[in-house]
């Protein structure tokens, strides 16, 4: 449900109606950014931001820090698994010795 894709705001096309051009891999589409513009800020300030687009509306900022954190966590999980694997490799040896 709810196909949403990350894209980057490249320009503001119609500030009165909160419309911006968003780029996805070189394809651009006009998108409404009303839901992500904070009160008392200027639409222009959002140029360069990554947003999540659903049916022509930007519905969320993409948080680079959080994304990095998730990737780091994934990395850690992986490394933890490697340690486990290393431990496992030692186990059968020990078993062999005790025989």
């Amino acid at each position: 449900m709810c196909l949403g894709i990350p894209g980057q705001i490249v320009s503001i096309s119609d500030a009165d109606n909160s419309m911006a051009m968003v780029d996805v891999s070189g394809v651009q589409r006009e998108v409404n950014i009303m839901c992500i513009v904070e009160p008392n800020t200027n639409a222009q300030d959002y140029i360069g931001e990554w947003v999540l687009v659903h049916v022509g509306f930007a519905m969320s900022h993409l948080d680079e820090e959080e994304a990095q954190r998730t990737l780091a966590l994934l990395q850690e999980l992986g490394e933890f698994q490697e340690e486990l694997d290393a431990m496992k490799e030692q186990e059968p040896q020990q078993a062999g010795e005790s025989q």
Partner: peptide
């Protein structure tokens, strides 16, 4: 191409 990929992502 990146752009074709992009269009496919947008439209599913």
């Amino acid at each position: 191409r990146d752009e074709v990929r992009g269009m496919c992502e947008i439209l599913g």
